[in-house]
Write a protein that binds this DNA or RNA. Structure first.
Lengths: 268, 268
DNA sequence: CCTCGACCTTCCCCGGGGGAGAGGGTGCAC
DNA sequence: GTGCACCCTCTCCCCCGGGGAAGGTCGAGG
């Protein structure tokens, strides 16, 4: 069984620096079909022409591309489609890198004692008429969903009477998905596309303003919660955020200001 | 049960944006002990003072720090020790980022058609006397092990008669760990520390030279293997690498030259 | 023919959770 | 008193990309 260019799985493994185990798995997953499988013995035979494919798979796996996506990339017929899929994964890597950087920065701030006290205000808010887009959203999708919803909202609301805001169900954070509303206050009811008129009920809010990008926002949530509990109050979602200064206003995250309003009620 | 500052697990989850499930898991793992556990009901009670700890854990998990390491970080008493552990993880992240960058660059090269043909030479090599450091090494540790071994070797060998080289067992790549030897040719036997005299046996080698950093080296291995198979030869490890130009010579990876010699034998 | 290595399949394990469901206790409002 | 939201424990199963081991079969060489 040594015709020229035909390799057993072990030889192929040595030439590609993949393990035999991994090659079998790639076969089962439909990623790298052996050139021939002996029907009697089940032996897998590979050819040298498959080495470059194996190397591409190897690189994609080093980039943590899931096997299913690797298959899609390899199956896409023309190089352009392939390039698009790869580029999309690279964008995903970039985004993850941004998140990592943000977590590192936030961790440094958490470990350095940052005693800056938070201003918290108790505010009674009347019922408000808004134009809103609402949906059940997963936590991982909330940023992209928000981008689309706010764009549609901006297009539909000609003269908003205040900055945009959002309502976030507790379950979004504790269960990973929940009801989310993005809204802008309006004088007239607006109904277009996904946009619907909506009345935000009157509530009593504990309000604090978060300064900076949102990577740290749970810290402000924690401080706000600490204050609320210290006042013998309790929180009762959904929480309201108001984007006083956001990416629409300035590209510098350090200048962003987000008002967090947590509905409270008295305990005991 | 609503004394000021004491929270049920659900309330604590809302304040920290962690799931109830995860908080229970962190308790079981000894990461975040509730301030009080009711012996009758088993209810976990947390205090607002624990919020910052929960946030640090959250950040570390965002950085993929394993729970066991998170525990070590939290358990380390003084802030300096903590900072060291965190810094160590950040270094690990940096290293991974480097690997990711290398994989991206290599992937681009693989997807662009790079037809540059490889020069392969069949060479009969006589037995050679060398000074060597050998060990059983895991693939993940090979770079750091190599750095230490080559430093010791350089210190022990006053007048090497050629560039440094390495021997790598097949199992290193296919099983993740294997026998590795780093050596330099010498006129006189050298024995110091881990350094031992050794005779490299005479073999017939298929030799190719890899140009550039080692992130791509498996591509050259694949091309060399393709050539060998095309000559109706077969490879038989361990493979030999000779570092003609390496990091010791120039910091520019593009100028590095690594000779790869694969022992071959005739088939059929 | 026998042995040995290479190959085959199948099953369990890892980590850090998510999800579901059973079976029961707790605390608060109506 | 009753409903209901919340909490408890416990048990299984799932995700992913492998690693490892068990036990069987194949092929080549002496």
């Amino acid at each position: 069984m040594h015709s020229a260019g035909v390799l057993t799985i072990g030889e192929f493994a040595r030439l590609t620096h993949l393990s035999v185990r991994t090659l079998r798995r790639y076969h089962d997953a439909g990623l790298l079909e052996p050139a021939r499988v002996d029907p009697a013995s089940g032996y897998r035979y590979y050819t040298v022409e498959q080495i470059p494919t194996a190397q591409v798979i190897h690189r994609l796996r080093e980039l943590d591309v899931p096997l299913a996506d690797v298959r899609r990339i390899l199956d896409s017929p023309d190089p352009q489609a392939r390039g698009r899929l790869v580029a999309e994964h690279l964008r995903r890597l970039e985004a993850e890198l941004d998140r990592t950087r943000a977590a590192v920065a936030s961790l440094r701030r958490l470990l350095d004692p940052a005693p800056a006290a938070l201003d918290v205000e108790l505010r009674r808010v009347p019922a408000t008429e808004v134009a809103a887009v609402a949906a059940e959203v997963a936590l991982t999708d909330v940023l992209s969903w928000y981008a689309g919803a706010v764009a549609e909202l901006d297009a539909a609301v000609p003269e908003p009477t205040g900055p945009p805001g959002g309502l976030y169900d507790d379950a979004l954070f504790t269960a990973g998905r929940g009801h989310v509303v993005v809204h802008r206050p309006t004088a007239e009811p607006v109904r277009a596309g996904r946009v619907r008129p909506m009345t935000l009920p009157a509530v009593e809010l504990a309000v604090a303003t978060h300064v900076g990008a949102h990577d740290d926002i749970d810290v402000t949530y924690g401080e706000l919660g600490t204050w609320v509990v210290g006042q013998t109050l309790a929180v009762a979602g959904p929480v309201r955020e108001t984007y006083l200064v956001g990416p629409r206003d300035t590209p510098d995250p350090a200048a962003w200001r987000t008002e967090i309003g947590w509905p409270v009620f008295r305990v005991g």
